[in-house]
């Protein structure tokens, strides 16, 4: 399967410090990849670069063979770590919004998922709890038939029951050819679904590989390996 993402010597410098420092990586299609690292390691910056929200200071980045822009945004489904809704909008308005702008959005699938979650379509965003907003956002993002899903801390702010639902939603709603990049520092909750992992620290990739290899060859869970690598 061809590579969905290719980064060469990717660097992002903010005013004073480098958030990403000369990163090179290749991500194949059809995989679930964990982008793992402690807080402030550069995970969100990398995801924002892939989503096209930031411009790299130097280096090259290709998504599905294109530099981030209009074409890549049509194939990337991005879940940021915070809700991005207009509070005055109803859920059904958001569905129409996604339907209007994303050709790959499956409205029926979204409505079914919202029905399963007992979330009314006519509810206004401002009336929803934080957890419900996160669920609605996840439903919208996972209802697209995207080639690449970018999920930035999808389980950070929700209770364990919601985490389970989110993981199930991710697993049951992505196509076999699609790739999912999940950024988190809560490894225990997601490690069973990961095919590959990338450990990132202070803007550099410190280790990357196959999740099963770690389990079989090193007889360790990713969580154990994470604790070893990022020991304070």
């Amino acid at each position: 399967m061809s590579n969905i993402l290719e980064a060469r010597n990717l660097t992002k410098v903010y005013t004073r410090e480098a958030a990403l420092d000369n990163i090179s990586m290749t991500i194949p299609g059809g995989k679930i990849i964990g982008l793992l690292g402690p807080n402030g390691s550069g995970k969100t910056t990398l995801i924002k670069l892939i989503a096209g929200l930031l411009v790299p200071t130097s280096g090259e980045l290709y998504i599905d063979g294109h530099v981030p822009g209009e074409k890549t945004k049509a194939v990337v489904s991005y879940l940021p770590e915070r809700p991005y809704f207009q509070n005055s909008m109803k859920i059904c308005d958001m569905l129409s919004y996604f339907e209007d702008f994303y050709a790959d959005f499956d409205r029926q699938r979204a409505e079914q998922m919202l029905y399963d979650l007992h979330i009314p379509l006519d509810a206004r965003m401002r009336t929803l709890s934080k957890g419900t907003k996160e669920k609605v956002q996840l439903v919208l993002v996972m209802s697209r038939r995207a080639k690449l899903y970018l999920l930035d801390e999808p389980i950070a702010g929700v209770d364990p029951a919601a985490r389970e639902y989110i993981m199930r939603t991710i697993l049951t709603n992505y196509g076999e050819d699609s790739t999912i990049i999940i950024s988190t520092h809560l490894i225990t909750d997601i490690e069973q679904i990961l095919d590959e992992f990338v450990f990132i620290h202070r803007g550099r990739i410190v280790r990357a590989g196959n999740a099963d290899d770690v389990r079989i060859e090193e007889q360790k869970s990713l969580d154990q390996l994470f604790r070893e690598v990022f020991k304070c």
Binding site: A51, G52, L53, G69, E70, K71, K73, A74, V76, Y78, P80, R82, P83, Y84, F85, Q86, F101, Y102
Partner: peptide, 17 residues
């Protein structure tokens, strides 16, 4: 609000220039 608050995360990831 549409460009520079949290809404920007949606606005700037729409498949438009």
């Amino acid at each position: 609000s549409n460009f520079f608050t949290d809404e920007g995360y949606l606005t700037f990831t729409l498949p438009v220039k």
